[in-house]
Amino acid sequence: MNERLSKAGGRRQVVAVYGAAGHTGRFVIRELSRRGFTAIAIGRNAANLAAADFPAGVRREVAALDDPASVARALTGADAVVNCAGPFLDTAEPLVSAALRAGIHYFDVTAEQASAQGIFERYSAAAEEAGVTVIPAMGFYGGLGDLLATAAIGDWTRADEARIGIALDSWKPTEGTRVTGRRNTARRLMLSEGKLRPLADPAPNAVWPFAEPFGAQEMVELPFTEAILIGRHLQVSELHTYLNTAPLRDLRDTTTPPPVAADASGRSAQTFLVEVEVRQGSMVRRASARGRDIYAITGPLVVEAVERILNDARVQGGVFAPGALFDARNFLAALTPDVLS
């Protein structure tokens, strides 16, 4: 295993994970350890932290967001923090503030539009002044779609329309997903005429001709944080995101069980396919990614971003969409073929 060494002093790089004992947090901890980082597992519940099966060498810290001193102690020695604790409407701002005070980079994996938008609006100037990079929504919902759209647009300076189709073969939601759904009641936003506007009610339906094995799928327009990210750095007049309806039935069924590990890595058997098409006049470009387990894929996505920021001598301060900072094609290629194809 290669150790990740900081630019200053050659010490091993340290990344804190808030919400580390949660389902997604455990994937992030494993990915950090696999890549040679020292991980700090932070949580609100000491018993859950103690019971979590973390790799050897992971430091455990208990901290409550309403106790800034405990958060500051938990972040001691960290170079960056990854927030995996939803609802992010409640956790993102306290942790961004703590990261800025500590002078460390902040990442989260929110799918909540209001949370990501709030971080851009309220912390861009402070992060720039502090020289701290802040990247919200660096997960399956949000970051992946932003990177695919950025890769598809390529050298175009603008696009008339972008469409994102997300197909899941099922959705076994975590308890955190259910809690976030109950908390996140804000009306969803989409891009229209280059501006964020409320999604129509009822949301439009469509049929998307996915590649096999999904094929034609019944879809509903359901924008996530990719609308916030893309609207920040790409000149796109119209952006529409669709999710197939089958997994939404799983999500809405209160008897649907949580995800179950199907291999030694902890990934479930769930499969996904994301297809993006962008149009400029009569020209159309496409990009797509497929893989397994929307929770598990978030680990490599956010840790790849952390690694690139911590090893970039030209790191910028501010709040950014991933596609605004990274070479999107190169970033996605780095995850191929192990976690994406």
Results as ranks from 00 to 15, higher is better:
A246E: 13
A99K: 10
G77E: 09
V179R: 15
P300D: 10
T110G: 01
V278T: 12
G231P: 12
V284N: 01
E93P: 05
G317P: 04
P68T: 04
A102F: 04
P87Q: 10
A216K: 15
L229H: 01
A186M: 13
F120L: 11
P68N: 06
D293S: 13
Q117L: 15
Q235E: 15
S70N: 11
P247T: 05
G194M: 00
I42T: 01
T241C: 14
A167L: 02
V220A: 08
G22P: 08
I42L: 05
L147F: 07
R26N: 14
A51P: 08
S170Q: 14
A50W: 09
F331M: 08
P87L: 08
A8G: 09
F331G: 07
V284F: 00
D108S: 13
G142E: 11
L335N: 03
Y141T: 14
S341A: 12
L243C: 09
A126F: 01
R11V: 09
D327I: 03
H105K: 06
R285P: 02
A126W: 01
S170M: 07
H105G: 03
A80Q: 05
R178W: 12
P258L: 01
R30L: 03
L75P: 02
F320L: 09
E129P: 00
A203F: 08
V82Y: 00
N45F: 06
I166T: 03
V284W: 06
S237I: 01
Q117Y: 07
R26E: 15
T150S: 15
G194I: 06
A334R: 15
Q117T: 10
L239Y: 12
P136N: 06
R232V: 08
A324W: 13
A261T: 02
L335M: 10
A305L: 03
N205G: 10
E193K: 15
V62T: 13
A64V: 05
M283I: 11
L147N: 05
D201F: 14
K195T: 13
V278A: 11
A46N: 09
A262V: 02
R44F: 09
L100Y: 11
G131L: 11
D53Y: 01
Q113M: 11
E212M: 13
G266N: 08
T225G: 09
T336L: 02
M283F: 12
A162Q: 03
A98R: 03
T24D: 01
L199K: 02
R285K: 13
G118T: 06
A98P: 00
R12W: 05
P202D: 07
T180A: 15
E129F: 06
I42V: 12
F88R: 00
N311D: 03
E121P: 00
P337E: 02
G10D: 07
E121F: 02
F331K: 07
E175I: 12
F107W: 06
F331C: 07
A227F: 14
A8K: 13
G57Q: 12
R182I: 08
A269R: 15
R34I: 04
F88D: 02
V81F: 09
V339C: 07
T256W: 04
A296E: 04
P258V: 05
V220Y: 05
P204Q: 04
